[in-house]
Design a protein around this nucleic acid. Sequence first.
DNA 1: CATAGATATGCAACCGGTTGCAGCAACCGG
DNA 2: CCGGTTGCTGCAACCGGTTGCATATCTATG
Lengths: 328, 328
Amino acid sequence: MVAAETRERVSLVAAEMGFRLNATARALTTGHTGLVGVIVPTLANPFFPPIVTGVQQPLTEAGGNVLLGVSDHSADRERELVHQLGPRVDGLILVAPVSPDAALRSFAERLPVVTVDRTAPGLPGVVVDTPGGVTKLMDHLLGLGHRRIAYLGGPPGSWMDRQRRKAALTAVADGGGELIVLDPVPPRFDAGLATAEHLVRQETPITAVMVYSSYVLLGLFMGLGNAGLRVPEDISLAASDDLTVIGMTQPGSTALHVPLQEAGSEACRLVREAPAAGSRPPRVRIATRLVVRDSTAAPPRGSTRTSHVPSHVPSGAPSHAPSRARKS
Amino acid sequence: MVAAETRERVSLVAAEMGFRLNATARALTTGHTGLVGVIVPTLANPFFPPIVTGVQQPLTEAGGNVLLGVSDHSADRERELVHQLGPRVDGLILVAPVSPDAALRSFAERLPVVTVDRTAPGLPGVVVDTPGGVTKLMDHLLGLGHRRIAYLGGPPGSWMDRQRRKAALTAVADGGGELIVLDPVPPRFDAGLATAEHLVRQETPITAVMVYSSYVLLGLFMGLGNAGLRVPEDISLAASDDLTVIGMTQPGSTALHVPLQEAGSEACRLVREAPAAGSRPPRVRIATRLVVRDSTAAPPRGSTRTSHVPSHVPSGAPSHAPSRARKS
DNA sequence: CATAGATATGCAACCGGTTGCAGCAACCGG
DNA sequence: CCGGTTGCTGCAACCGGTTGCATATCTATG
């Protein structure tokens, strides 16, 4: 409300003197702090840091910052963190929260809350569409001619795992194949190694495996190699994520590209937008992209039988195309 | 300053009413916020998240929180973040900062600053003793009988790389060996793959390689395998860190265990302790631990020659033990 | 030239705590 | 029984900004 010239002169002098206005004091009156709280289960899992980065980036450009919380997969800590961080942030982003829906909704009474990788009724949320991606992946395998496809899921007991499995079952059934659902394993290299041994002992041949974790895929890759199976000549492999390690196979592995950073950015956008006064909270679904590399190929000839009949069966690949073709 | 009984009753009622005292307002008067700023170059490199976790954990137990900054390896952003975060935190932890010493010292004029993975004159700091670890590693290789050892360093231009290389040179010279310093490479799988091709074309045989990054090691592992070289029969490999991927080789890889989380915790402790009034700022050196697995073994017979003379030279390993034996 | 209307300026209250001091009551010793 | 000391309570100022209002200045108009 002062003359533009004066204003400029003042701010110039202020800058010279190194004056910076105190964010804390400002926050006290205005009520907003420029901070966004991000609560993740852990940073040890490489899945989460990219999401934090995704929030960070657009926020920093707007002069804001991330206040970090690590819940350690504990609902109690999650609640405590919300209470601790809540009053000093403009909004809260809960990544893969473990608290029950009701608790999440109560958090949102005081300030904008956005969930990531989980939805809660009444709350805005961002989810990565891995189920949709799994469908693409299965169609890809079916299109190559695979009919007996194994699904190696996990993490054991997780909500996302159920979503993915359901999508896989539907896609494979629609494509006229058979999905062999293996027991869920933890997302670790050695789990893949162990599963490889299990796989080669299968009576009925499996020609393709979809794995939910790159780590497991790497183990599988190596374990199958040890057993003398070549990828992709003898068996196809694909993963439903593309963490860094996915680039560490030879040949390169087919996988779903999961734009985690984008998920973070979207969450950041949502949390800073309208405090969700609307009756229907915004939901963002991040599409995955199937990246076909060289770990998937047509099944070996004669392997499309559904049980171990002699291998000199008619070797033509099934003629019908997969039920739904997808763009990449 | 009120009767204990009254005090208790009041705080009880307050708790019932869900009262929480406003951290922002408190910060305004007291000057401290309970927040610690952590500025990392990036979260994409798996080296950094564990450090953040290390800061987080003890801080959370004390009721504090982490205010995160990502500098993207830019000195400008680093400075800006310091100015932005500085006024609202009790202390700043700069992880692998890129700003010049003078700038770092000027940051510390306003608030406690601790560096991690870098030292700056006058500032408290936490460094992981990879140079010391490299010495252990070199002694291990020398003890196995290796005499021509390659050092594959990086990241290109980094301060830590110079420290490590110096340690390696000294250790190998002391042990009567020869260190072949290869050009630094970025910490990526494909860099290892490329270097493997380069290595197998060496005229004079190299029997062991020390790599600064697990990712590069993995690439090297695979690249050498492609070239028909077996690890460790034909060549030994070891890494100077033990990020998750180090567990993904067969045989398991010898590496230095680097307690990154501990480094974070120590930094947290330093930043919260005395504001460095002492003339000599505290320095913490985190020891690494050499984990010997199966990627290192005695060099192939006849390979200890220092140039490509015919292979029927006296094949006895040099008789003198490595200059210094170390506990694990 | 006087005055209404528009525009600028300065002032005071407030955000929600902390802190130091004045005031009052109780307690002690002389 | 009284003055002095101690212990607790309540009040007011302050942290460093923001905000709204009242006052002062300026411009335009009758």
